[in-house]
Structure formats: C-alpha cells, structure tokens
C-alpha cells in the first residue's frame, strides 16, 4: 500500500487513529505527571535562597509555569491549524483548531489562578498588574473570543473559517499587545525589561517543571483528540463510514 501523509487528513481515517492514540497520551501524561509531582515535592529544597527567600509556596511554580507555557503553546497550535485550514482548505485542520481551544483556555485559566495564588504569599496581593499576569489575562480573552465566535455561527463552514481568521489576526497582534503591556513607556523600555534565564534555576526544580509541562502537553493531545472525535461524529453524522464505525463500536 502506498502511504501518503495526507491519508490521515481525512476525518474518517483520523477518527480511528485518534481513538487508538488517546489512551497512550493519557498514559504518558499520567506517568510524567506523577514523576513530576514526586520530584517537585520531594526532591526540591523547601526554600529558594537569595536575598528574598521564597518559602514552600514556590512549589506552585510547577503547575503555574507548566500551564502558562501550555496556554501560549496551544494558542500557537490553534493559529497554526487555522492557517493550515485557510491555506489548504482541509476540514480536519479546522476541527483540530476548534478542539484545541477549550483546553488552551483551561490552561490559561489555571495559569491565572495559580499566578494569583502565588502572588498573595510572595507579593502580598491577589492581583497585581504585572506584565506577565496581564498578558496571560489578555490571552484568556483571545481564547474566549475565538470560542465565542465559533459557537455564535451556526453554519459550520463559516464558523470554521471566521474563527480561523480571528485566530490568525490575534496571533499577529499578540506580540504587539504583549510588548505594549510589558513596556507602557517607550522611553524607558530597556530599564524595565525583565528576564529570567533557565540556567539560574535549580536543576531539580527545572526538571520537575519541564516534566509537568510535558505531562500537560500529552494531556492536551489526549483531550483535543477526544474532542475532535466528537466533532467529527457531529459533523459527519449520516455518512456511511460513521454508521459502520458505530456498528463496530457497538459490537465491542
């Protein structure tokens, strides 16, 4: 059989493939998640040193950084699938974009919540208009806008393409928006620029952070595949392959 990578761009074949992959992604997410949490809670120091010591509450970092990274990464994925859909006009790409969005919004909400809970013990306030926290809030609005636009349009084709366009417009604007939040006064940007380098983080902490991020990533794969399967069935209801697929599933 001649193999072609576009083979899986058909919803019918991807439905089966996704179904077989979901348990694996969940398993990977679970294993790395457990490892990350074990490492994060038992192999790390109780306090972070320095002139301004961070006490045990710094352990929020693992879930906070992981979800914040995933929230940004998933927006990139969403925009990439959207662009792919607009360029090649493949239905599956739109479906993937749509199914990534709620998981992305979930991670954004989690990052905001944990950021706020970290802010309380370390800055003494639940909410500070810190550039990173504010950027995350704006990202949340972008996700919500995307989901709202998609669900407001009844015609699936128009919904897909319209929300894909807004996702790309959002992606183009994101650097400008984040920059404007980071540096509200262009006269003194250089002085304000904050930077944290990976190298200065304790190795054990970094490992737990990366492991939990990986776990979230695998989780995002699993949930978006679950969602895309539902979307495929909803869209393709009545076709022959769906009926056959349902018969297969009923037998099992």
């Amino acid at each position: 059989m001649k193999f072609h990578w576009l083979h899986f761009s058909s919803p019918a074949t991807f439905y089966g493939l996704a179904g077989r992959m979901i348990p694996w992604f969940f398993a990977l997410a679970l294993v790395t998640g457990v490892v990350a949490l074990y490492w994060g809670f038992f192999q790390t120091p109780d306090q972070l040193g320095g002139s301004n010591p961070q006490k045990e509450y710094y352990r929020i970092i693992f879930v906070h950084v992981g979800s914040a990274w995933m929230s940004m990464w998933l927006y990139l994925v969403l925009a990439a699938w959207s662009a792919f859909g607009l360029v090649f006009n493949t239905r599956l790409s739109y479906m993937m974009a749509v199914s990534v969005a709620p998981t992305g919004a979930l991670f954004t909400a989690l990052a905001l919540f944990t950021g706020s809970f970290w802010g309380k013990p370390s800055w003494g306030t639940w909410w500070d208009w810190d550039p990173r926290l504010t950027s995350e809030l704006i990202l949340f609005f972008l996700y919500i806008g995307y989901i709202a636009l998609h669900s407001a349009i009844d015609d699936a084709r128009r919904a897909d393409r319209a929300s894909a366009l807004i996702a790309i417009v959002g992606l183009v604007c994101v650097p400008i928006i984040f920059w404007s939040i980071n540096c509200p006064d262009p006269n003194q940007c250089a002085a304000l620029h904050q930077r944290s380098s990976m190298g200065s983080i304790d190795g054990n902490i970094l490992f737990a952070m990366l492991a939990l991020t990986f776990s979230f990533w695998m989780y995002a794969f699993a949930t978006s595949f679950m969602r895309v399967r539902s979307i495929i069935l909803e869209r393709e209801a009545g076709t022959t392959w769906v009926n056959e697929q349902l018969e297969l599933e009923a037998k099992r």
Binding site: D46, Q47, K55, E56, Y57, I60, W118, P121
Partner: peptide, 13 residues
C-alpha cells in the same frame, strides 16, 4: 502543611 502555605499550594494543585 507545606511550611504553613498549605492553603496556597494545595488549592492550586
């Protein structure tokens, strides 16, 4: 107890 920060840490997780 997470060094007294149980509320913050555990509510996040």
């Amino acid at each position: 107890s997470q060094g007294g920060y149980a509320f913050y840490v555990w509510s996040c997780y």
